[in-house]
């Protein structure tokens, strides 16, 4: 086992009623890396993220987070993860603040850390007084901002995000980009699944392209450009995902 790796995925497979959503994924991520997974709809991106977070059970394969096998020690492994699903959900009858308090409590964030970090994050994501209103009235963007706050409040080392920019206004999208880059500098590892190619180009230290449940290629943008013979990220993506 390579202890310096933050995330190790070995021969990960997932079957849904005879359909193989993931066909043997192998991947290793290091601290300070932003890995962006690209692929068409139904390629297996969300399934991969859900398997890492424990929302799905693998049909085969193993996942290690900081050397901890998620199947053997799920609670220990999950305390190191921060996850944002593709459809952010906040309990409709809770306010944004109540939801954040709930998440921080589940992750057992210390009160002093909570006070400090929540203040910073509320400022960073431009959280207004609406945080004390019921979330059932929030827009998609408001929910995304609350979800980003809860994600970073417990200071995870491995951050998994499914479609981070959906519903965000340009200003918040820029904040998210800057936040991700600063997290990389803090040696956090980010695993992002997205369709937004420009975002991938701006933040990724390494890209992965998945199609039909198979990781077709991984590498830097330059490496992928070399393999595909294309320079533009859109052209690289289309070339590498074509049938």
């Amino acid at each position: 086992m390579n202890d310096s790796k933050r995330l190790i995925i070995k021969d990960l497979k997932k079957e849904f009623n005879g359909f193989w959503a993931l066909k043997g994924l192998n991947l290793e991520l290091s601290p300070g890396e932003i890995f962006v997974l690209l692929g068409p709809n139904g390629a297996g991106k969300t399934t991969t993220l859900k398997l890492i977070t424990g929302l799905l059970h693998p049909t085969q394969g193993e996942i290690f987070i900081e050397g901890i096998n998620i199947k053997e020690s799920p609670i220990k492994a999950k305390s190191l993860i921060g996850y944002v699903p593709d459809e952010p959900f906040i309990y409709p009858k809770l306010t944004g603040r109540e939801f954040i308090n709930l998440v921080a409590s589940i992750y057992r964030v210390k009160k002093a850390d909570y006070e400090k970090r929540s203040k910073e994050l509320f400022e960073k994501f431009d959280i207004g007084e609406w945080i004390d209103e019921l979330s059932e009235g929030y827009s998609h963007g408001m929910k995304q901002r609350i979800i980003m706050c809860q994600l970073l409040l417990h200071n995870p080392v491995l951050i998994l995000i499914d479609e981070p920019l959906v519903g965000l206004d340009p200003k918040t999208a820029r904040t998210v980009r800057e936040t991700f880059l600063s997290l990389k500098d803090q040696k956090k590892t980010l695993f992002i699944s997205t369709h937004t190619l420009s975002f991938a180009r701006e933040v990724a230290t390494r890209l992965g392209i998945i199609n039909h449940g198979e990781l077709k290629f991984t590498g830097t943008l330059e490496e992928l450009a070399e393999i595909s013979g294309r320079k533009n990220i859109e052209e690289i993506y289309l070339k590498l995902t074509e049938e």
Partner: peptide, 12 residues
């Protein structure tokens, strides 16, 4: 409407 409930405070 703004709501200040018992969960307004952080318990941890």
């Amino acid at each position: 409407k703004k709501i200040h409930s018992v969960l307004y405070h952080y318990y941890g």
